[in-house]
Design a protein around this nucleic acid. Structure first.
Length: 292
DNA sequence: CTTGGGTCCTGTGCGC
DNA sequence: TGCGCACAGGACCCAA
């Protein structure tokens, strides 16, 4: 799924049509995504104004002029699309508040629909339905199980080598596995962890507790670099991820290891070939030669 | 506490 | 062309 750069890209795409806008109509086309939607989901959201759209880890947070925040997670295959209301209404038809949209291209997986008073329709699609949404009291959001244990944002200063040193201390698992743990750092996923470790030339399998502080400094730098580059590129479009406006991210063209098994390592100075191994149930792509 | 494995759900792409 | 299997961006839960 969408990892931090993709969620950040989605946030940026949705913000112009949602921030400061009132929801005129909300539709839940099924009672559950991964989890049941709140009983009063549609009722709570209808008429609410989205004050601001934020991101924490891989969660999108729509701050409402209500007690609750709309929390959304895209899971593996979640995606938003924005449809603007059509300008070409039939001649003479003037019905304020009634908008016309092009037919939904994928109605089978369109699970939640938001329409603003200004006439933007935001549809949430999620074939695998690993994504989820909920309404959570804003004042106690940080205490909610989804948020209470989250590690620092990787692009914030609090995420540094000292933090990793502490989090990795005594751990025998590889840094690959631990960096996927949202309690250690929040927002990384399989792709960007593989990419960062290759750039830092650190083995995904090395006991994390034995990585020197100096190499952790390098790792922190590459993590921040790869995330910033990916955000600038609009994220990575693999199978079904797209930006909210339908545009495709293009960071996938800059992958150095992810999904490149058998191809040459791009780090200079050697002729290593990218390998794939399953680690903790997930594919790890790495260069066996330069990642030590 | 750490670690590995299974699970949710559906779609796609590959080899035969 | 059809079929079965492996695999997919996440994260929780449980047992050892």
């Amino acid at each position: 799924m969408p990892e931090l750069p993709e969620v950040e890209t989605v946030r940026g795409g949705l913000a112009p049509v949602l921030e400061g806008h009132r929801l005129a109509r909300v539709e839940a086309r099924r009672p559950n995504l991964r989890f049941p939607l709140p009983e009063n989901f549609v009722q709570q959201l209808t008429g609410a104004t989205i004050l601001r759209l934020d991101r924490r880890a891989k969660y999108l947070l729509a701050r409402l002029d209500r007690e609750d925040t709309l929390v959304m997670h895209l899971g593996m295959s979640g995606r938003f699309e924005i449809a603007k209301s059509r300008e070409d209404r039939p001649e003479g038809v003037e019905r304020p508040g009634e908008f016309h949209y092009a037919p939904d291209p994928d109605p089978k997986h369109a699970h939640v629909v938001f329409e603003t008073e200004a006439g933007a329709r935001v549809t949430y699609y999620d074939p695998r339905r690993f994504g989820y949404m909920s309404l959570i009291n804003t004042a106690t959001l940080h205490l909610h199980p989804w948020f209470a244990g989250l590690g620092p944002e990787p692009l914030f200063e609090a995420f540094d080598a000292a933090h990793l040193k502490h989090a990795f201390a005594g751990r025998k698992q590889g840094p690959k596995t631990l960096l996927l743990d949202q309690r250690i750092v929040a927002g990384l996923g399989n792709i960007y962890v593989c990419e960062a470790l290759n750039r830092a030339r650190i083995s995904p399998f090395k006991a994390a507790g034995k990585i020197s502080l100096a190499r952790l400094e390098g790792l922190v730098t590459t993590i921040k670099d790869v995330l910033r580059e990916a955000i600038a590129a609009g994220g990575s479009t693999l199978r079904d991820y797209a930006q909210a406006d339908g545009a495709l991210g293009y960071f996938q063209h800059r992958f150095r290891v992810y999904d490149r098994e058998g191809e040459p390592c791009l780090n200079p100075g050697h002729k290593g070939v990218i390998a794939r191994k399953v680690q903790a149930g997930r594919s790890t792509f790495y260069c066996p030669v330069c990642q030590t």
